[in-house]
């Protein structure tokens, strides 16, 4: 009986406060649940059909794809660069790791405040710095003007937050690479770049795959950053923002839930795709 006694508190929490609610809400997406049009009634795929007819939702699908592409690419590239920097021991390495994980540990609520101070078109750091360096001669508006620039600037904020974990995950994989592999590479006269391409990158694939998956999950569900920095503007509205508008402003909860179900499924599918593409088991 002992094992059951040990796991039962956990099981109770997971079943009562995670699995039951999840199943319950999945069912809801097949119902018409509109506060302004009661009562709740079964409606089959109606919620899903209406979603795909909604131009705002379609626009957000495009935006969200851009968020995912930019976010996953940037966080992975930066993560790898940072992990390689930290691969071998050097003085101050542990301090640098603390600096690295700092953005990851900060509450999202504060992120909005911090980055407003950078992007602002009147007093922002970026404008001031570019101006001081004579790269621009008058202050620019970074957010809201051009769709791609806006999405890039917004996504950079999220990348700031998720990159530390990517870097750590890649670093973990790098630490498993035996040092003598590089030694033998060296004997062949391989350059640093070649060593990176032939040894580091292939052997870090498991870590990179996991890092990319966490980035996919975060970026497909991006909400705070566009909402805080760009309002409801179509230039940056994400899919999760539409779930908010549909359910909380239109009070069409069934449709809102259907959309969040779609996002969940998309998250799982894309994550699995990334794993299939990138992940390769590594044996040393």
């Amino acid at each position: 009986m002992l094992p059951y006694a040990l796991v039962s508190p956990l099981a109770l929490f997971i079943v009562a406060l995670a699995l039951v609610p999840a199943g319950y809400t999945i069912v809801a997406s097949f119902y018409k649940v509109q506060a302004l049009d009661p009562p709740t009634r079964f409606s089959g795929l109606d919620n899903f059909r209406r979603l795909f007819r909604d131009t705002a939702v379609r626009e957000s699908i495009g935006n969200t794809l851009i968020y995912v592409v930019i976010g996953v690419t940037l966080s992975t590239v930066l993560g790898i660069a940072m992990a390689v920097t930290l691969q071998h021991r050097f003085r101050g390495r542990s301090v640098l790791i603390a600096v690295l994980i700092l953005p990851w540990a900060l509450p999202g609520v504060v992120e909005g405040i911090v980055w407003t101070g950078i992007w602002d078109s009147n007093t922002g750091l970026l404008n001031s710095a570019l101006n001081s360096l004579h790269i621009i001669n008058h202050y620019q508006v970074f957010l809201g003007q051009h769709r791609l620039l806006t999405i890039f600037a917004i996504e950079l904020v999220q990348v700031w937050q998720i990159t530390p974990l990517s870097a750590l995950l890649v670093l973990a994989a790098l630490q498993n690479i035996p040092g003598d592999l590089y030694e033998s590479g060296n004997l062949d006269g391989a350059s640093a770049w070649a060593a990176f391409r032939r040894i580091t990158l292939p052997l870090a694939r498991p870590g990179i795959a996991i890092a990319m998956v966490q980035a996919v999950i975060a970026t497909l569900n991006v909400f705070d950053q566009p909402y805080i920095l760009n309002g409801a503007a179509p230039t940056g509205a994400s899919l999760t923002m539409q779930t908010y508008f549909i359910s909380f402003q239109n009070l069409d909860f069934g449709e809102g839930y259907a959309l969040s179900l779609i996002i969940t499924i998309a998250t799982l599918v894309v994550s699995l795709g990334v794993v299939k593409l990138v992940y390769r088991p590594v044996e040393f």
């Binding site: 319950y24 809801a28 569900n221 999760t240 359910s247 839930y257």
Partner: peptide, 20 residues
């Protein structure tokens, strides 16, 4: 996010009770 929570909140509240 606010959003997302809200969605679900609403659903749970409403499925059983309609929403008079």
């Amino acid at each position: 996010t606010t959003a997302v929570l809200a969605v679900g909140l609403a659903c749970t509240g409403m499925i059983a009770t309609a929403c008079s």
